[in-house]
């Protein structure tokens, strides 16, 4: 099988487009899709200038998605004085797992020579995910705690780093799974929130909460997960490939399997789900904007984070974990 662009030996076949591509044309195609998404989403504001550049904070975990995102953004914008890239890595306190992925992050940012901030749950909250998974004071999956802590750290540090945008490495599979889960839950407000928070192009998003949150974007969301991984392999990027030992998103796993089976039998399913969902979420977001029925936002009485409650969910969970530790007579955050 040869590349349909140049006749060199193909390294992959994209069933959804029917194309066979060689290494060079495949890698260019991944890069092109990311750049087109950056353009289509109006990621770089017209107001950005060499004298007043935009700061883009990239959530860098060391996994293939965030490594590929950081690599291509660097290739694209390293010489553009209107953009400053900063990598932000979170150490959740998962022994073995995150230590190795942090090594991958450091070798990437050293090689690219980009600013890199590393923060840990231990320093931020006085806890480690290994302890949280063991204590589990709320009877939830570890990912449920970790997601709340991660969003808090990402948004606080994005603000502290004076970020204009917070970019994450979500790929097509991630986004199609989230879209399908939102559709199946029937929660229209969640779809509207998804659109305005991270999915919609910047010229179509509402700005109701523009002062409270650093806007997020997912420039890799047109590229299937396997292609992201194949790109990382072919470009020999330093990535850490292992499943988090606490991973337990059973429902998402079910949706992932369903989607991959559909994709095998009906190539292009993930793309068509996203095309329809994005348009639908845009209409729903417009419908709900300014209707006054959304939750009222205030400040957490403990940490000041934007929240709909007196105490934000993060402070609530941190307190629960510390109380469980005290009851068990175990000190978190130290060996």
């Amino acid at each position: 099988m040869d590349c349909e662009k140049c006749g060199a030996p193909a390294v992959m076949h994209a069933a959804y487009s029917g194309l066979h591509l060689c290494e060079s044309h495949f890698c260019r195609s991944v890069e092109k899709r990311l750049r087109r998404r950056v353009r289509d989403d109006d990621l770089l504001s017209d107001a950005a200038t060499p004298d007043d550049p935009e700061t883009w904070v990239v959530g860098l975990s060391g996994g293939k998605d965030s490594v590929v995102l950081t690599h291509i953004l660097h290739e694209t914008f390293a010489e553009d004085p209107r953009v400053e890239l900063v990598a932000l890595t979170i150490h959740e306190g998962i022994q073995g797992y995150r230590d190795k992925s942090l090594d991958a992050c450091l070798s990437l940012t050293d090689a690219l020579d980009i600013r890199h901030e590393v923060v840990s749950y231990e320093e931020e909250f006085g806890l480690r995910m290994d302890d949280v998974a063991r204590e589990d004071p709320e009877g939830m999956a570890p990912c449920a705690y970790c997601g709340v802590f991660r969003r808090d750290v990402l948004s606080r540090y994005a603000e502290a780093l004076d970020a204009d945008k917070l970019l994450t490495g979500h790929n097509l599979d991630d986004e199609a799974q989230t879209a399908l889960m939102n559709v199946l839950s029937g929660d229209l407000r969640q779809m509207a929130k998804h659109f305005d928070a991270s999915l919609g192009s910047f010229d179509r998003r509402g700005d109701e909460h523009a002062d409270e949150f650093v806007p997020r974007a997912k420039p890799l969301r047109d590229v299937p997960e396997k292609e992201v991984a194949l790109y990382a392999h072919l470009r020999e990027l330093p990535t850490h490939m292992a499943e988090c030992p606490h991973s337990s998103e059973a429902y998402r796993g079910e949706i992932q399997e369903l989607l991959l089976n559909l994709e095998s039998n009906h190539p292009g399913t993930r793309h068509s789900i996203m095309a329809g969902y994005e348009e639908f979420a845009a209409i729903v977001a417009e419908r709900f904007r300014g209707d006054g029925d959304g939750p009222a936002l205030g400040d957490c009485e403990r940490c000041g984070a934007t929240t709909t409650r007196d105490l934000c969910r993060k402070c609530e969970l941190v307190e629960a974990v510390h109380e469980a530790d005290a009851d068990a007579g175990v000190g978190t955050g130290s060996d």
Binding site: V11, S61, A229, E243, C244
Partner: peptide, 24 residues
């Protein structure tokens, strides 16, 4: 050592399979 398209007919009697995806 080179990836090959999955729809291509097998021409070798010994190959390696590389798992590309194991969690995020």
């Amino acid at each position: 050592g080179r990836p090959v398209p999955e729809d291509a007919p097998v021409e070798h009697d010994e190959v390696r399979v590389l798992r590309l995806i194991k969690g995020g």
